[in-house]
């Protein structure tokens, strides 16, 4: 998936001189996760460069550049470090088009590794997507595989609005089904690891059904798509699993169609439960599908604690927790 993300930026930089890439350790070294490796060498230091450790500076400078007419694609080293840039994202990038009546826009992407499962403790494991989905003017994207990562990132860079692009870091090197004690499978052994060369997009705002089923709808994104698949399989449940891919704008039609068909729904995300994006999904499902529901909508999420280090796998909403939720929803 790292190669797919790098390839997306490479394709965009090749096609459009206005695309610039920068962030902490992003230039010469190519990023702590290697997502920008080789870009500085290929495009020169004025289009791919290292920055001071200042997230507000990175995003603030990117906003100025976007106002100029560039298309910055910046990296925040970990999503956990984005908060110093939050004011620039929320008060500035998200609102510039609106408040200037279109005189200035912020066509830019803020990439950041998200989620846990790598023993990163509380400062390298968070999933802050709900902090962005709550903000009007932003788009929020979470890919779950290399093909989508490349197609969504190209679409995000070409988009005329600011896009928050959350990359589940546990998926960087292979799909992860939540069974942390089993050997890691690389993307090369998965169909989803097949990524076409060159330019293609996965449009923002389109969900994908990754498993068709009739018993229950499972709404998920990022790492938890794979964990949901494993959980449904382990539980022997004929679940319909939807990878939302883009949280805002949301593919509500896909959600509605599926829940109207199955009559049951669970939402799975790694982020903390309270006021998480699952709350929004649950509210929408009851608004749109209430009279077709056979059971209350259930959420499976991270506990409302900071992301712990030693207790990572008790915190992580793994296949067992999802399996229990499936059972509860199906028993009603």
């Amino acid at each position: 998936m790292i190669e797919a993300i790098r390839d997306a930026m490479d394709v965009c930089m090749e096609r459009d001189d206005d695309v610039v890439v920068f962030g902490e350790d992003v230039g010469f070294f190519g990023g702590v996760f290697r997502c920008t490796a080789g870009l500085q060498k290929k495009y020169g230091p004025s289009r791919c460069f290292d920055t001071p450790i200042s997230e507000a500076g990175i995003v603030g400078a990117a906003i100025g550049m976007a106002a100029y007419g560039l298309r910055p694609c910046v990296e925040i080293q970990f999503a956990d470090y984005v908060y110093p840039a939050y004011d620039q994202i929320v008060s500035e990038a998200a609102r510039i088009r609106y408040r200037s009546n279109g005189q200035f826009t912020a066509s830019m992407v803020v990439r950041m590794p998200t989620g846990g499962g790598i023993f990163g403790g509380q400062t390298h494991s968070q999933s802050p997507e709900a902090l962005f989905t709550h903000v009007s003017g932003l788009k929020t994207v979470v890919p779950s595989n290399p093909f989508d990562a490349k197609g969504l990132l190209i679409a995000a860079i070409e988009d005329d609005d600011p896009v928050i692009f959350l990359e589940p870091k546990r998926l960087y090197n292979g799909p992860f089904d939540g069974y942390h004690d089993r050997p890691v499978k690389p993307w090369s052994q998965s169909d989803l690891g097949e990524v076409p060369d060159g330019h293609f997009t996965v449009p923002l705002g389109q969900a994908k059904i990754v498993r068709e089923g009739t018993a229950v709808t499972m709404l998920s994104y990022g790492t938890m798509v794979h964990v949901s698949l494993a959980a449904a399989e382990a539980a022997g449940v004929d679940a319909e699993i939807i990878d939302l891919r883009t949280l805002v704008p949301l593919d509500l039609d896909a959600v509605r169609r599926s829940v109207l068909k199955t009559g049951r729904c669970i939402v799975v995300h790694e982020a903390t439960l309270t006021s998480g994006f699952g709350a929004e999904l649950t509210a929408l499902v009851q608004e749109e599908c209430f009279f077709h529901l056979e059971a209350p909508v259930r959420r499976v999420a991270g506990w409302d604690t900071p992301y712990p280090h030693a207790q990572e796998w008790d915190y992580f909403p793994g296949p067992d927790r999802i399996g229990r939720a499936l059972q509860e929803v199906l028993e009603v």
Binding site: G60, A61, I63, G64, A67
Partner: peptide, 9 residues
């Protein structure tokens, strides 16, 4: 900082 980014652009 946005002014600085604009100049950098």
């Amino acid at each position: 900082i946005q002014a600085v980014g604009w100049g950098m652009a």
